[in-house]
Design a protein around this nucleic acid. Structure first.
Lengths: 144, 144
DNA sequence: TAGCAACAGTTGTTATAGCAACTATTTTGC
DNA sequence: GCAAAATAGTTGCTATAACAACTGTTGCTA
């Protein structure tokens, strides 16, 4: 591994690419008046897949801090997209799930997201996807 | 391009990797009491390279919003690492440059950053770096 | 079983991200 | 030349990120 290679700013490139994607997604959401943020969407998507989870699980699944989850969920509850349900056994636990309106929102927004993912991958192959995954996973595992 | 491929959450992976890196860097900075944040560091690094620039240039170079630059610079000025200088011709313009303390900070922190970059790339080759660059650049260009 | 550690979640604080609206200049177009 | 448009930067606002400190609950262990 050469020195020039190490000093190259991949951090910057990751950051720039992610911001570009995030802005694109947000602008499309806004243009279609979906009344949702990118990170709120990520939680809705996750809740749709897992039906019923806790704050902790959501945090693990989305790579977000539990305090961030707490605050985003509060916003989603206020919007009527998510409902809380107390665990009858463990009174510390709160289960989270989409309301019918939340499921509606998911189905409404999902096609846009699919199209936007397509846009990002234009001109890239499935092998490129595998390479990207491999490299990012390696970096992720390397970092303590 | 298959459908499963498109629906795979690369956004999530980018986000997770970047957070892991950012947290690692920040914890190392804190552990060595460098009294600086990751994004503040990125601006210091950029100002070291470019010696004398404006808010606008910094925003372009770092892929940050100009309002964000404005606020980070304010913090760096308060810490005594950056100084502002008015343009004598165009009175709207403000030139930014590192103070001697800012240059010191750069030289103090730089070796850590170099080592941390090395840690992230462990087990990856220069070709991997080129692949990552190519793929991220393609995505970046794809997104409007 | 009393005490305490561990766990689930919330709240306070500081920093970054980005949009809108603002001031103050400079440039453009007629 | 002068009004309008463009440019440089700041400020207000809301959202996300992360740490510390907090409440309340459960589990462990002497």
């Amino acid at each position: 591994m050469t020195d020039t290679f190490v000093s190259n700013p991949s951090f910057f490139k990751l950051d720039a690419t992610l911001k570009k994607l995030r802005n694109y997604w947000q602008k499309q959401f806004d243009a279609k008046q979906k009344d949702i943020t990118v990170d709120q969407w990520l939680l809705v998507e996750n809740l749709y897949k897992h039906k019923k989870t806790t704050h902790n699980e959501l945090a693990r699944n989305t790579s977000k801090d539990i305090t961030t989850i707490s605050r985003i969920i509060e916003l989603l509850v206020r919007k009527g997209l998510v409902q809380r349900e107390a665990d009858s056994v463990d009174r510390r636990k709160v289960y989270l799930q989409l309301t019918p309106a939340g499921v509606e929102k998911y189905k409404d927004v999902k096609p846009m997201v699919h199209d936007m993912r397509k846009v990002g991958w234009k001109g890239l192959s499935e092998q490129d996807y595998n390479e990207l995954t491999r490299i990012l996973d390696t970096i992720y595992e390397n970092v303590p």
